[in-house]
């Protein structure tokens, strides 16, 4: 009765060909934890589901000498179990670990989290703070987009209908560099972020020489906050600098009031989280 069909290509090329050949709704199934819920509300629609989990390159994470090449469909449970990746990017692992339950982490992927483009996605601020680059493939070849430019609005991203996210590349951190991600939820687990903050800092001889701060769930997309980073760079990452970064995040936040939090609450919380995440990242970068 319904027009749903399903394919599970085994190569990127095959997936790109399927995308190019199809008309109508096409959904990429990576983790499925958002897609399958969205499908429940749309009985009878024509759609093609392309499961990318049989494409081995999309399910792997490789650490090269200078970068992490993250297959976008690799599930968070597998990612968070990778001690080698955690050593490089503890904040990214924290963000992946916070997505849903153990069960959801057994399905959900960083690439799916990114493409689904929820304002409250946990891994997106972490990716932005790390300066991640998204490699996109389509009928006319490949292109790359910075993580902060990938999401264009609530539930929308920069990819055309016939494009596919192939790989997320994150450069190996400079020496004395570390990241951290924190989010605020009312319970201890399972909730969607009311606000989130990811911070990456480099600390040399007690001075912050480089920083990136990204915040989530406080605007239509996760935001890179250069003013917060500027407050940290050149400082000793002491109380004053962290407070200044927090204030910059609060100022940059453009949240809405909904069932998960009010504008005032979110603006306040994102500052608290920025300060705390920066403190954790700083301690990590100092090797504490």
């Amino acid at each position: 009765m319904t027009g749903t069909s399903y394919r599970s290509p085994e190569s990127i090329e095959e997936a790109v060909d399927l995308l190019a050949a199809s008309s109508g709704t096409v959904d990429i199934l990576a983790g499925g934890t958002d897609l399958i819920i969205q499908m429940q509300g749309s009985i009878g629609d024509q759609r093609l589901i392309i499961n990318v989990k049989h494409i081995s390159e999309m399910m792997q994470a490789t650490l090269t000498d200078d970068a992490l090449l993250l297959g976008p469909a690799m599930c968070c449970a597998e990612l968070t179990s990778r001690a080698d990746i955690k050593q490089w990017f503890p904040g990214l692992i924290e963000s992946a670990y916070l997505i849903g339950s153990s069960q959801v982490q057994g399905r959900a992927s960083v690439g799916g989290n990114l493409c689904n483009a929820s304002p409250a996605a946990d891994t997106i601020p972490a990716l932005i703070a790390l300066g991640a680059v998204c490699h996109i493939v389509g009928p006319s070849g490949e292109r790359s987009v910075n993580a902060e430019d990938f999401v264009t609005g609530v539930s929308s991203n920069c990819m055309a209908d016939n494009e596919l996210l192939r790989c997320i590349q994150i450069a190996r951190p400079e020496p004395n560099t570390a990241d951290a991600y924190l989010r605020f939820i009312p319970r201890s687990e399972m909730d969607i972020a009311v606000a989130g903050a990811a911070v990456s800092v480099t600390v040399n001889d007690g001075v912050c020489t480089s920083a990136r701060v990204a915040i989530g769930a406080v605007a239509t997309t996760a935001l890179l906050v250069p003013a917060a980073a500027a407050a940290l760079v050149g400082s000793d990452l002491g109380e004053d600098a962290l407070d200044a970064a927090a204030a910059a995040s609060t100022l940059a936040a453009k949240p809405i009031t909904d069932r998960r939090g009010t504008v005032e609450f979110r603006k306040h919380i994102v500052g608290v989280l920025t300060k705390r995440a920066a403190g954790i990242a700083a301690a990590r970068a100092r090797g504490n």
Binding site: P186, R187, S188, E189, M190, D191, I192, D258, R259, R260
Partner: peptide, 23 residues
């Protein structure tokens, strides 16, 4: 949680927050 029209906004276990084992 209701909106101005009297429609419940958190009709699911995601946003109707019962205690978890970790809580």
């Amino acid at each position: 949680i209701y909106d101005d029209n009297g429609i419940m906004e958190n009709a699911g276990f995601l946003d109707y927050r019962v205690p978890l084992a970790s809580d």
